[in-house]
Simulated scan of single mutants.
Amino acid sequence: MDRIDEITTAELQKKLEAGEKLELVDVREDEEVAAGMIPGARHIRMGTIPENLDKFDKETEYIMICRSGGRSTNVCHYMQEQGYKVRNMTGGMLNWQGETK
């Protein structure tokens, strides 16, 4: 299995605070995101990623987010196999210290 690029929650927070435009995708379930998402993230549930591939662009890098980093790793492997550029946010929302909305 190919290695998945990773970004820590702290690195991501720094980039967002610096005003970097990043494509964030939260793959958690509806009730999980109701408790708060990183501002600017798009919510596409893990189970619906295959039918939503047309919403992704192969030239863009996406940062995948879940609760602890496990599901988003699986999504990253799947999407990487389909030819997309992805990065996993390690530690997930459990480690996220930044703002949520």
Rank of each mutant, 00 (worst) to 15 (best):
residue 25 V to G: 02
residue 82 Q to K: 15
residue 99 E to M: 11
residue 39 P to R: 07
residue 31 E to L: 04
residue 74 N to L: 14
residue 60 T to G: 01
residue 8 T to N: 04
residue 51 E to H: 07
residue 3 R to H: 12
residue 18 A to I: 05
residue 28 R to D: 06
residue 36 G to F: 08
residue 100 T to Y: 05
residue 84 Y to P: 10
residue 56 F to W: 10
residue 14 K to G: 11
residue 25 V to S: 00
residue 13 Q to A: 13
residue 1 M to E: 11
residue 95 N to G: 06
residue 79 M to L: 15
residue 37 M to N: 08
residue 8 T to P: 10
residue 36 G to R: 06
residue 93 M to P: 02
residue 35 A to Y: 07
residue 8 T to K: 07
residue 70 G to V: 08
residue 27 V to L: 12
residue 65 I to T: 03
residue 95 N to P: 00
residue 40 G to A: 12
residue 63 I to E: 01
residue 84 Y to T: 10
residue 80 Q to V: 06
residue 96 W to H: 07
residue 99 E to I: 06
residue 32 E to A: 08
residue 6 E to P: 00
residue 8 T to G: 06
residue 76 C to A: 12
residue 25 V to L: 14
residue 69 G to W: 02
residue 81 E to W: 04
residue 32 E to R: 02
residue 82 Q to M: 15
residue 19 G to L: 04
residue 25 V to H: 00
residue 80 Q to S: 14
residue 24 L to A: 06
residue 5 D to P: 13
residue 18 A to H: 07
residue 33 V to Q: 08
residue 94 L to F: 10
residue 9 T to Q: 13
residue 79 M to P: 05
residue 2 D to P: 12
residue 66 C to R: 00
residue 13 Q to Y: 09
residue 13 Q to G: 03
residue 36 G to W: 05
residue 67 R to A: 13
residue 11 E to F: 03
residue 46 M to N: 11
residue 32 E to D: 14
residue 53 L to Q: 12
residue 21 K to C: 02
residue 49 I to R: 04
residue 75 V to E: 11
residue 26 D to H: 01
residue 58 K to I: 09
residue 68 S to F: 01
residue 101 K to S: 10
residue 98 G to R: 01
residue 42 R to W: 03
residue 86 V to C: 09
residue 22 L to C: 08
residue 50 P to Y: 12
residue 83 G to E: 10
residue 85 K to E: 02
residue 12 L to T: 05
residue 32 E to F: 06
residue 93 M to Q: 03
residue 23 E to A: 09
residue 62 Y to N: 04
residue 26 D to P: 00
residue 93 M to C: 05
residue 101 K to I: 03
residue 87 R to L: 09
residue 72 S to Q: 08
residue 100 T to C: 08
residue 22 L to Y: 02
residue 69 G to N: 07
residue 76 C to G: 01
residue 13 Q to R: 15
residue 1 M to L: 12
residue 18 A to K: 14
residue 87 R to C: 12
residue 99 E to N: 13
residue 1 M to G: 15
residue 78 Y to C: 09
residue 97 Q to E: 15
residue 31 E to C: 00
residue 90 T to P: 00
residue 27 V to Y: 01
residue 29 E to T: 08
residue 31 E to V: 00
residue 13 Q to E: 15
residue 90 T to K: 06
residue 52 N to W: 01
